[in-house]
């Protein structure tokens, strides 16, 4: 069976809708992982032990196991607990939590690297500890780790293909749908790869822009 790319155009709309879903899930999960990462970092560093220890354990578990396994856990585990989430939401939560843990590690290091004098100065000016963290320390810490967080977000885009296994009809699953009708796996996976590559280029450009906007040395 040779290659025949003429079957592709008939399914282009299916694939393009898949691209939109891939972008949607990537953006939602990226936002969740960014703010979740900050939250986890603050808890891991400053919360009382009964919050800190479970969060550290959770982070350790999530960093040591594959995303695919975590997606199965979230998807099937929530059903077992009686929470029936749409696949899209389960996918966003799974991807978002996974990358939140990685972002949190980066942000923790950055928070510790912010000069102690910043916190002291803010406190002297009358800020409470939480105000000083929120308005002085964390913004500086986050700015320092924007480039590595950007790398994580690009990894997130590629890992978003995994949510096809729990039934989110993003780019990978849309291609599989077309393959199911046409029995032409090579053509459609190749097309999916091209679209991923294009979205990836776009994402890299966006990240570079954000990096430029947030870096001090403009």
């Amino acid at each position: 069976m040779g290659l025949d790319f003429t079957v592709v155009p008939a399914y282009l709309d299916t694939i393009l809708i898949g691209v939109l879903w891939t972008i949607a899930i990537t953006v939602c999960a990226a936002i969740l992982s960014f703010f979740g990462g900050i939250l986890l970092a603050v808890i891991a560093l400053y919360a009382p032990w009964f919050l800190r220890l479970p969060v550290r354990f959770f982070a350790w578990l999530f960093m040591g196991t594959p995303l695919l396994l975590q997606l199965f856990l979230i998807y099937f585990g929530l059903v077992q607990l009686g929470i029936d989430l749409p696949a899209f939401v389960a996918g966003v939560i799974g991807l978002g939590l996974h990358f939140a843990v990685y972002n949190s590690e980066l942000i923790q290091t950055a928070i510790l690297a912010v000069d102690k004098g910043q916190m002291e100065a803010a406190r002297t000016l009358g800020c409470s500890r939480s105000q000083a963290l929120r308005k002085v320390v964390i913004p500086q810490a986050v700015r320092d780790v924007i480039p590595p967080i950007g790398n994580n977000m690009i990894a997130l885009l590629k890992d978003s293909a995994l949510v096809s296994v729990i039934g989110v009809s993003e780019l990978t699953l849309s291609s599989q749908l077309a393959i199911g009708r046409t029995y032409r796996p090579f053509e459609f996976y190749a097309v999916a790869a091209v679209f991923y590559y294009i979205v990836n280029l776009g994402m890299e450009a966006v990240m570079r822009r954000i990096e430029r906007k947030t870096s001090l040395s403009r």
């Binding site: 290659l3 590629k158 293909a161 995994l162 096809s164 990978t172 796996p185 190749a190 790869a193 991923y196």
Partner: peptide, 22 residues
């Protein structure tokens, strides 16, 4: 660039399911 720019899952599918076609 190609292998880092596309998902590993797609590469795997392309090889395993699409391989026989080529």
């Amino acid at each position: 660039s190609v292998f880092r720019g596309t998902p590993a899952l797609i590469q795997l599918f392309l090889l395993y399911f699409g391989g026989p076609q080529i």
